[in-house]
Design a binder for these strands. Structure first.
Lengths: 105, 105
DNA sequence: GATAATACATTGATAATCTACGTAAAGATA
DNA sequence: TATCTTTACGTAGATTATCAATGTATTATC
């Protein structure tokens, strides 16, 4: 399941800055509660993606004074997302053929 | 990319018996040449799936006298494929939302 | 004052991945 | 007949990914 973390995180950050806790919520919301990521699973991935140069972070203070580490996607990350998207769609196309379903099913 | 080996292999074997070399060909064909698996990458996955009980194997001799190890999907494997499919479609649905595309694009 | 929610992090065991390498036979080509 | 390509299987081992478990701390709610 977690093999999909990279495209999902990059896609979310392409929509705009976000932070760890909120990313988990967004994934949960967008999936209708099906995808529930743990924080212990997400943070190492965020650190790895930052180390690889796909995202970058800055500490910010929210309205209520809470510290948050906001991540944003880099130019390199955008290119990587395009590649990830191509890969995903390639596999998706094959699976759709094998499953004999319409892609929306 | 290789995170997709499991659903792909199980889906192919659900269509009928097959063997390592042919599976690589099928994936290549179905993807229009985009997905090219190496044998050294596939065989360990086949062994793992067999060990986990999702597929089973038997040695057979082809028309030209060549030895082949044919794999077929087990009942447990069929159940696992259903689960894999659900997982895949959950992620797919989220990505489609984020990418703002029709699933066929 | 206690509990839940928010928000970050690391550690470390387990599992997955993939390149590189090895074997061998059949078929094609020169 | 010698060589190359294709078919067909395999393992080893380094690298990487995964995830549960655990820790810290603040804010919000009850």
């Amino acid at each position: 399941m977690a093999a999909s973390t990279k495209p999902l995180i990059l896609s979310i950050l392409k929509e705009g800055k976000s932070y760890g806790y909120l990313i988990i919520q967004k994934v949960k919301d967008l999936s209708g509660g099906i995808l529930e990521w743990s924080d212990g699973m997400l943070y190492p991935v965020l650190h790895r993606l930052e180390k690889e140069g796909y995202i970058e972070s800055e500490w910010m203070i929210s309205e209520n004074g809470r510290k948050r580490k906001y991540y944003s996607i880099t130019e390199q990350g955008k290119l990587e997302l395009i590649a990830e998207k191509e890969d995903w769609l390639s596999v998706q196309a094959v699976l759709v053929k094998l499953w004999g379903i319409l892609p929306t099913e």
